[in-house]
């Protein structure tokens, strides 16, 4: 299987890439690690006439600390996230999620920006970004703008990214005392997308949960926040009975597509179980933090 014909571009800078994208508004496509796009091109689901490779652009690489935030270049690979001392120390949730993505070879090519831009409901970073309340930094001909993760994922393969824009970086808050996270993903085998996944970030003040975000993967047209269970747990001392009630609300919030991973009912139950585990993990970590 070989992709259809295209002209290949390897711009040296983000501005050059944006210019190329502007020159080919209808048939230009950005390629990052290529592990979603190239398979689609082989199957002719995607047939760009101009392929613009941004994987090697230096300004899209690297992880830096900016005050209480971490800035992650969009072309940072999953392997680089896993190896980063800064991410391990300040935002270990991202490391845990990256380790569960695909396999070592794919993680050497797959990028955080590509995963977010693709808009596949099975991708793992979108829910992590929602749970972290991350900002997506994008750049187009008019310059840079920032989109909150909660406003970014609009539907299957549909995001708030304009066709002439490129994701340049992700900004996530560094973990603070009292904050805990949980990441649980059910998958059938290495390399598979989640049957269902739940990411939770919460903050405890004393024993009271004063902030919580629950984000779900692959149980709707896109990753999404489960607001009903969040509202239930917000401002409460979370105990097992409350977690059970939240799990039921998680199940009610899901609208998964039936596929080889299971029917809708099964996936809803699995999303609830992943959420139970993630809430418990997040609580334990928040108490230890």
């Amino acid at each position: 299987m070989i992709p259809g014909e295209f002209e290949y571009h390897a711009p040296a800078t983000v501005d050059d890439a944006i210019q190329l994208l502007a020159q080919h508004p209808d048939d230009g496509k950005i390629i990052a690690g290529g592990h979603s796009l190239l398979p689609m091109m082989k199957l002719r689901f995607a047939e760009p006439a101009h392929l613009i490779n941004i994987f090697e652009i230096p300004e899209l690489k690297g992880i830096t600390e900016e005050g209480s935030m971490l800035r992650i270049g969009a072309m940072t690979t999953e392997s680089e996230l896993i190896r980063s001392a800064l991410i391990n120390q300040k935002c270990p949730l991202i490391v845990e999620a990256a380790k569960m993505i695909a396999d070592p070879q794919v993680r050497n090519r797959g990028t955080i920006g590509g995963d977010i831009a693709h808009g596949d409901p099975g991708n793992d970073h979108p829910a992590v970004m929602l749970a972290l309340d991350a900002d997506i930094v994008v750049k187009g001909p008019q310059g840079e703008r920032t989109i909150a993760a909660k406003d970014f994922f609009l539907g299957t393969y549909v995001t708030a990214l304009e066709p002439n824009e490129i994701i340049t970086a992700i900004r996530v808050p560094a973990s603070t005392p009292g904050t805990g996270y949980g990441f649980n993903k059910l998958k059938r085998k290495t390399g598979d997308f989640a049957t269902a996944g739940a990411t939770v970030v919460l903050h405890l003040k004393g024993n009271t949960c004063d902030e919580i975000r629950i984000a779900l993967t692959n149980v709707g047209p896109t990753a999404f926040r489960a607001e009903a269970p969040e509202a239930l747990l917000q401002g409460r001392e979370i105990d097992d009975a409350l977690i059970e009630q939240a799990a039921i609300k998680v199940m009610e919030s899901c609208a998964p597509a039936e596929d080889l991973r299971g029917d809708a009912e099964y996936k809803c139950h699995m999303a609830a179980e992943m959420a139970r585990r993630s809430i418990r993990d997040a609580l334990a970590r928040a108490k230890g933090n």
Binding site: P39, K42, S79, V106, N108, R109
Partner: peptide, 24 residues
């Protein structure tokens, strides 16, 4: 498999393992 699952095409590229069916 030609779909980046099986790893039969793994080569070393710039000091990292990659699946050469999914690199141009």
């Amino acid at each position: 498999c030609e779909t980046s699952h099986c790893g039969a095409c793994t080569v070393d590229f710039n000091g990292e393992s990659v699946k050469s069916c999914t690199v141009l």
